[in-house]
Each structure stands twice: as C-alpha cells, then as structure tokens.
Design a binder for these strands. Structure first.
Length: 599
RNA sequence: GGCUUCGUAGUACAAUGGAUAGUAUAAGAGUUUCCGAAGCUCCAGAUCCAGGUUCGAUUCCUGGCGAAGCCA
C-alpha cells in the first residue's frame, strides 16, 4: 500500500473511532501533498466533515491529528492550519521504504491481472511515408500499451494497415505510367518514400489533365471524373477487387516496398506490434452484422435499397451503412473489425489511438455496435489526440507544409550531435557509441516533447524549441541519470551497498529536506503509474520523471555523497540515488525513451 | 446551421472541487579551489467575459466571445 492509501485508510478508521455515530466514506478523504510553506508531508482536507460533525475544522484537525500520531506508526507530528491537517511522516517510514525497494526493478509494476486489452495505433496508409503528425500517434500508442502492461493488464499492440483503396491505386497507376520499372534497389530510395513520390506524381498529373479538359470547355466536375489517369485508378480498383492477378501482383510488390520502409522507421523509433490487421482482409467484414441488424429491425432500408441506422434518439443523425448496390462504406468494415478483434482476443477493452478529427466517427461506431447488440461495444474506447501543428500552420499533406517523419528523426539526431559537440561532451566515446548516444538524445527529445502534453490537447511543435535540449525535456532527465551513473562508477564508493550492511543499518540522523523530498517523490511512483494507466496519459509520467530529475539535481547540489558526515549517511544517499536512477529508467522506458550512462 | 473539444504569465505546458494557481523557456541577479555548471539559487510575471451551484471554482452548470475539428 502506498503512503497516500495508508493515510486515507488510517484517517478513515480514526474518524470512525472518534465519531462512532457518524458514517464516513473513503472517497470523502482528500489527501494532498503539503504545500512547501507549511511543515509536513501530506495534508488531509477537513472541510468535507465539518458539516455533518458540526464541529470547527481546527478542532477536528487537532483531534484527528493527535489520534493519528498516537495510534499509528506513520506520523511523528501534526499541525492544523485553517482547515488543513498537515502530517509529518516519520523518517523511519522513509528509510524502511528505501530498504525494501531501492534495488527492486519491479518497483511500480502492478501484479498481473486478467484484463485483456488491445491498443490499436499507428495504422498507416501504404501510399506514402509516415509524416510528422503520425509520430504523436505512434509514441502515444506505444507508451500507453507499456503503461497498461505495467498496470498488470494483458495487452495486444495492434496495427491496422490501410493497404487498399483508391488512394493505393493512385500511386500504383502513376508508377505504371511513369516509373520505368523503378524500385527501391534501383533508385536507392526508401520504399515508402518511393511509393509516396508516385502518389504525389499522380496528383500532379491529375491536376494537369483536369486543367487540359477544362481548357477544352468541360465543366470542372466533369473534368475531374473524366481525367484519364483517374479513370485508370478506378479501373485498377475494380480489377483489384475482382482479384486480377497482375494488379494484385503489382499491389503486393509496391506494398512490400512500403512495409520494408515502415519497418525501418518503426525500428528507429523503437516501436513494435504484436498483431497486424490488413484492411484488404477486413474490408468485407461487417456486412453480415449489418444484414442481421436489418433482419432484427434495428436498422432500416430506404427505397433505393440502402441500409441506414437511425441515431436521432442519441442526438445524432442517420448514418449510411450499406449503399443501394450492396457495397459497404468506411464504417461498415470498422464494425466488422471491432467484432473480429473482440472475438479473437476476448477483449475487455479495445483502445483506438486515432486523431480527434475522428471523434464523431468513433462515437458513431460505438453507438451502432451498441444498437446491434454486439458485446464488443462496451470495451471500445477512443484515445483521441489533438493535431500537431507547426507555428506556421497545420501539418497536412495538402497544404504542402508536410514534414516527413524520417526527415524529422534525422534532424533531431543531427541536432543532438551538434549540441553534444558544442558542449564538448564527446570525449571517451567511440564513433559507434557517439552515434548511439545521438540517437538516444535526439529521438528521446522528440518523443518526450510529443508525449509531455496531455493527449487530447492539440499542440504546437516548434522545431526550434524542440531542439532546445534544456528545460522540460528528455535530455534534462537523461543528464540527471548520467550524473547518477557517474557517481556510481566511482571506485572509492561501494557501487551497491551489500545487503549484509543493511542488517546493521541504522539511521540516527534526521533526513534533510532534500533527502525527504526525493524519497517522498520516489514513494509516489506507483501512484503515478496508476494515474497514467487510468487516464491513458503518458504525460503524467513525463511530469513525474522530470520533477524527479529536478529533485535529484537539487539534492545533488545540497549534499556531497562521497563526503557525507557518516557512513550511514553515505550509504543512505547512495541508496537514494540508486533508486532514483532505477525509477527514472523505469518511467522513461515505458515512454520508449532510453537513458544513457554517460553523455 | 448542429455537435464535440479547447481558451491559464511574452511563449509552451501543469494543477482527483481545496491553502498564496505550479513548471519550463525567454528577461534580471547570483553561483565552479569541493562527486558532471547540459546544473543549482534568488527575482519578477497568468486563470477569455458574465452569471449560477458550493464553506471553497482554473476545475462543475448556464449564457456569451474566441480557436480547432467533425457532421450536412
């Protein structure tokens, strides 16, 4: 049990003992960390009780505080200030905590449970490379998956690849017409970029053809339909759906290039998946459950034969599910895939990491599943995240300001190199070690910058600011970690106090303020993990890791470790920094960020 | 037009309904005979507006204003 939980529990039983006639609930007890200007570590808010108990807040505080100090072994002092009961934790509570956990690599990880959850993320299209906006999705999905695993849940990381459709045919047609057999090997261009180039080429050509037709006197809308290259793409899509061998072969070949490219990018980002779904295999799903819904009268048919769902009772409108010709629409296959996932993995939770422009779509998806009586509906959760914008405007391919993900990664690594060299910190590394370090710093900075903001908020990515390795960044945390490792490398200090030493370990001196603050923060790690898991919010861990690094830096500045007054103090401080490094590594690992031992 | 989300120092972000609203940057002042100064210390600066609920509102509710997204 964490300290906060213990404080709540002991306060509850204390209140029940002191006021046997009243009834209390644990949810009424608010425990906060005590503000620095008051003495104490944790604060119980008294106002919620004064009304029913008909007493003055400060009287209650004195009574409760006195009881807690007398009857528990947690506290050594209490002080009531205007309705707040400030409690001081005994030093021995902290030192016992430290002895129990300082070298525990599982500290913060919850026991395994049976909750089965799928996190679908990344989900790229195979007609172009990943762009910068995708990075937030990838980092979020990966971090949330790790956080839920650490919370003890059984997690499947899934990637639903959008590998078919008119947009895929566009790049295929352009490659056929203009590619002259170009391959990633023959051109030296990464596969996803090569295919993306032909997608761009298609659109250029399409615009030209429209302009030519309009110049011939055609209406704009007619020209858009009749442009030969667009017709070629549509024919190709029909051939693809018929299973035309040549088209399928080209499709497999070009998608293969893209996957090779994506795999490289994922590897650099340190991101992986347990399960791939391909839209080419799922796009026909969903029709069946729609037809069943129609039979049961949950859905209705219009005169043209199209099938609809009426969501007006839910405050929405009517949604098309099957066209008059029986073909499905986008949401139909999502219904089918949701059911498939649920049945394949017996999911309790199915999390979709998708940008907030899909909020409406996801809401509709869940509502329809519910209406259709599909049990999967309950577990559907949209982890919606806001767009990443540039200071100059939105990052969308249409507007020409698109920033490529691979380029961004290269840029970050280059900047890490530049800054490290400028700071003169390259000594003692081999060339390979330096390259690995630059990747760790550059990609770490990028990940942290995108994860530190609460997912649902849109954010501005300022390249200039993101390369600033000072401040609220991964680099700051990495640096703190490297400093700790540097101390632990010293030969005149025992790397790790051995356990036999602990037996006789006694702490006669009081903890200093810095020591206490750092220990308090370390003790809060499990709470933070839980909060991050409950809120699906890696930003909680970003905040936590950063404040831990800050506390360490202050502690480090205040206290010499090698020259501590006593051996006990020296060992205590060593244990504190060993544990600090441990927790920093753990928290950051869940975010997908590694910490160097030297930098 | 309808629905959803967001409005906090110059800027970028925090704050289960709780104390004098935190942190980082940029601006100002210090700090290296002593374990890594990519550090630390000090100093300034903000809740869009108007109501309501509450002992207490950045947080919850209503109405404006502003921004983004989605649906027709």
């Amino acid at each position: 049990m964490t300290l906060v939980q213990q404080i709540k529990a002991t306060s509850l039983s204390a209140l029940q003992t002191l006021y046997p006639d009243a009834s209390f609930d644990i949810s009424q007890i608010a425990v906060n960390q005590t503000k620095p200007e008051f003495s104490g570590h944790y604060t119980v808010v008294l106002f919620p009780f004064v009304k029913s108990l008909r007493c003055k807040p400060n009287e209650l505080g004195e009574k409760l505080g006195e009881y807690l100090v007398q009857h528990t072994s947690l506290f050594d002092a209490h002080q009531t200030v205007s309705g707040f009961l400030n409690l001081s934790i005994k030093d021995s509570v902290f030192t016992n905590f430290l002895l129990n956990h300082f070298n525990d690599t599982c500290y913060g990880t919850a026991a395994k449970n049976d909750t089965r959850v799928m996190v679908e993320y990344s989900s790229p299209n195979t007609n172009k490379p990943l762009h910068f906006g995708h990075l937030r999705n990838n980092f979020l999905g990966f971090a949330v998956s790790n956080i839920l695993k650490a919370d003890g849940q059984q997690v499947v990381m899934a990637n639903l690849v959008n590998d078919r459709g008119i947009h895929i045919c566009k790049s295929m047609v352009a490659w056929q017409q203009f590619g002259n057999g170009a391959t990633p090997e023959s051109t030296g261009i990464k596969g996803d970029h090569l295919v993306g180039d032909y997608y761009v080429r298609f659109n250029d050509e399409y615009k030209k053809q429209i302009a030519a037709l309009v110049a011939d006197g055609k209406e704009q809308a007619v020209a858009e339909k009749e442009a030969p290259i667009m017709q070629a793409a549509q024919n190709m899509l029909r051939d693809w759906e018929k299973g035309d061998e040549k088209v399928r072969e080209l499709w497999s070949k070009m998608n293969g290039w893209v996957y090779t490219g994506f795999d490289k990018t994922y590897a650099r980002l340190g991101i992986s998946f347990d399960k791939y779904y391909y839209e080419s295999e799922t796009y026909l799903l969903g029709k069946k459950i729609v037809e069943e819904g129609l039979e049961r009268g949950v859905l209705f048919k219009k005169v043209d034969g199209s099938v609809w769902v009426d969501l007006t009772d839910e405050g929405l409108d009517q949604k098309l599910l099957l066209r008059g010709d029986g073909t499905s629409v986008y949401i139909t296959q999502d219904l089918g895939t949701a059911k498939l996932k649920y049945e394949e993995y017996k999911l309790d939770q199915s999390i979709y990491v998708i940008a907030d422009e899909q909020n409406y779509h996801m809401q509709v998806l869940q509502l329809i599943m519910k209406k259709l009586g599909e049990p999967a509906w309950q577990g559907i959760r949209h982890l919606s995240y806001g767009m990443v914008e540039l200071p100059s405007g939105k990052m969308k391919s249409r507007e020409g300001t698109v920033v490529d993900a691979d380029d961004m990664i290269d840029e970050m690594i280059a900047l890490a190199k530049e800054q490290t060299e400028a700071a003169g910190k390259t000594e003692g590394f081999s060339a390979e070690e330096l390259q690995a370090l630059y990747e760790m710093i550059g990609i770490g900075a990028l990940k942290f910058y995108l994860l530190r903001v609460e997912p649902k908020k849109k954010m501005i990515f300022d390249p200039k600011e993101s390369i600033d390795l000072h401040g609220y960044t991964a680099t700051f945390i990495q640096y703190a970690h490297a400093r700790i490792c540097s101390i632990l490398r010293r030969e005149d200090l025992p790397l790790m106090p051995d356990t036999s030493h602990f037996q006789s370990f006694s702490l006669t001196e009081e903890l200093t303020k810095s020591e206490g603050k750092l220990l308090l923060a370390l003790e809060q790690f499990p709470e933070m993990m839980k909060a991050a898991a409950v809120e699906y919010s890696p930003s909680v861990l970003c905040n936590y890791a950063f404040s831990l690094a800050q506390l360490f830096n202050s502690f480090y500045d205040d206290h010499p470790i090698a020259k501590a007054a006593t051996e006990e103090k020296k060992n205590l401080r060593l244990m504190i920094i060993v544990m600090t490094a441990q927790v920093l590594r753990h928290a950051m690992k869940l975010l997908g960020i590694r910490l160097p031992e030297k930098m």
